[in-house]
């Protein structure tokens, strides 16, 4: 049986797709057979972040409607043996995702894969609800900013009431916080909520902190998940996140301000 991981947030633009791509790639690199699914029907973007946009032939909705089989729609990643992408459709309406249809596809994928990463769309409409419904683990992607934290709390409420595990009174979904776009300098200056602040408000286990980083845009520009850039702070932070997801205990990095030299202090950066 595969473990189903939903990357969700409520709010848009916080880094769900970036994180889905990075985490799925990280799991695959470590030898786990992984598939990442784009649930954002009508606004597909995971394919771009994964760099496989020109290889999309069939999509998730085609499979649900029986217009293609899974193997025709799955795109094998160029970089990792163990990684596959199931793209969202670009044209159909959101109602194309039915609980039965999604459940059937996930069941079939469960036979072949160890991890199924579901990249949720923003909002709390059908696509987002379908992405989280079957989840075993939820990675709640949050920016240290008021609207994102509030929306994350809303999503936690939905995970606890509208998911399969909630409805069937099973063991609850494991909820993890992934704090993205973190700026230690701004936290130090009292301009940004700290890791501890967000942890205290949302009261869920911290999985990782990804620093605000120029590497993320560079990665999306080139269609290579940022975790592949192990020189970068964000790439390393995602690496740590994947390790923790796999049960390793490692200390947080990139949460304190980096030391500046005397010249930088005087003349600015």
């Amino acid at each position: 049986m595969a473990q189903i991981i939903v990357v969700t947030s409520g709010k848009g633009g916080v880094g769900k797709t970036t994180s889905s791509a990075a985490i799925a790639t990280g799991l695959a690199i470590r030898g786990h057979k992984t598939v990442v699914i784009d649930f954002d029907i009508g606004l597909r973007n995971l394919d771009l972040i994964m760099g496989c946009e020109r290889r999309v032939v069939y999509d998730f909705v085609n499979v649900i409607n029986g217009e293609s089989n899974l193997n025709q729609a799955l795109i094998k990643d160029k970089r990792s043996e163990n990684l596959y992408v199931l793209p969202a459709s670009q044209t159909r309406d959101k109602d194309a995702l039915t609980r039965e249809g999604v459940g059937k596809v996930l069941d079939e994928l469960s036979k072949d894969f160890e991890y199924i990463v579901c990249d949720s769309p923003a909002g709390i409409e059908t696509g987002a609800l379908m992405a989280l419904y079957f989840a075993d683990v939820a990675i709640v992607t949050t920016n240290p900013e008021v609207s994102s934290v509030r929306d994350s709390d809303r999503i936690l409420g939905i995970l606890q009431s509208k998911s399969r595990r909630a409805e069937q009174n099973l063991e609850p979904i494991k909820e993890y916080l992934l704090l993205t776009r973190y700026s230690p300098t701004r936290v130090k200056n009292g301009e940004m909520l700290s890791v501890a602040d967000v942890e205290e408000i949302l009261a869920i286990k911290l999985l990782g902190v990804i620093p605000e980083s120029q590497a993320v845009l560079r990665a999306s520009n080139s269609g290579v998940p940022v975790i592949m850039d192990q020189e970068s702070d964000a790439g390393q932070a995602y690496g740590d996140t994947v390790s923790r997801l796999l049960g390793e205990e490692i200390p947080l990095r990139f949460v304190t301000e980096e030391k500046k030299g005397l010249l930088k202090r005087i003349f600015g950066s």
Binding site: E145, V146, V149, R150, D153, R154, G157, V187, G190, E191, M192, L193, S194, D197, I201, L202
Partner: peptide, 17 residues
Amino acid sequence: TATVAKERLQIIVAHQR
């Protein structure tokens, strides 16, 4: 302002819950 943000969030989140 981070302190202000935290206080506002604690109130709204408690209300939401």
